[in-house]
């Protein structure tokens, strides 16, 4: 487009051209965020995975002294209906005897101490719900089935490297550094819990 007054207009035009071009470039660049986001977000857990993110368990079939294992988010969950003796043993343990003093309970704050009431079910001290993965290197401890070794403390025993857990799922002896984790869960009723 020929412009006879090119010298004059070039000066005026420079600022406006730069602004428009910069504005166009900036506006186009803003679009990159919303363009890239779906490409990244699609790798996040999808709706069907999220729907399986929580599971409801009926506790009524579990007799006192019995334990069941269920899967939640791909991990084994130990649910034990503890007998009176098991609860006593856990409650009377001194904190000083524990290698890991923290409760590791996702329903409580990080610094809650590992006393039995911080490990057992809220208002339901006979119920213990823990993620059944040894905190050493990830094996699944034994102790859920009748006849399994429960270790020296009556809880669980990990055969891989010899970690012993007590009746509150806390590490007592062996290489595991932390107590078995308590997952986030709530009691929907006395006989029903929802994990996750």
């Amino acid at each position: 487009m020929a412009n006879p007054n090119s010298t004059v207009d070039a000066v005026d035009d420079t600022d406006r051209r730069d602004f428009i071009t910069v504005a166009a470039g900036a506006f186009a660049a803003i679009g990159l965020g919303p363009l890239v986001w779906p490409m990244l977000d699609q790798m996040n857990p999808d709706a069907s995975a999220l729907a399986l993110g929580s599971v409801e368990i009926d506790l009524s079939p579990i007799a006192v002294g019995q334990a069941i294992t269920i899967m939640w988010r791909g991990k084994p969950i130990f649910i034990r209906n503890r007998a009176e003796g098991e609860i006593q043993a856990a409650e009377t343990t001194q904190i000083s005897a524990l290698p890991d003093r923290f409760a590791r309970n996702e329903n409580l704050s990080e610094d809650a101490p590992a006393v039995d009431r911080n490990r057992a079910g809220e208002g339901h001290e006979n119920w213990l719900v823990v993620i059944g993965i040894c905190t050493h290197l990830g094996c699944i401890p034994r102790g859920q089935r009748v006849g399994d070794s429960k270790g020296e403390f009556g809880g669980w025993f990990c055969p891989c490297h010899g970690s012993h857990y007590d009746t509150a799922g806390r590490i007592r002896k062996g290489p595991a550094p932390r107590n078995m984790e308590v997952p986030p869960y709530t009691f929907l009723s006395d006989t029903r819990i929802k994990i996750g």
């Binding site: 779906p38 490409m39 977000d41 699609q42 996040n44 999808d46 709706a47 069907s48 995975a49």
Partner: peptide, 28 residues
Amino acid sequence: AMHYVANEALAFQSIEHIMRNVNWGWLI
């Protein structure tokens, strides 16, 4: 290709999975 399954029994259903469940799957 992160969500598609190339198997006769699952291909069609994996596409519906993308359309319905995968975040932004319908758009992609």
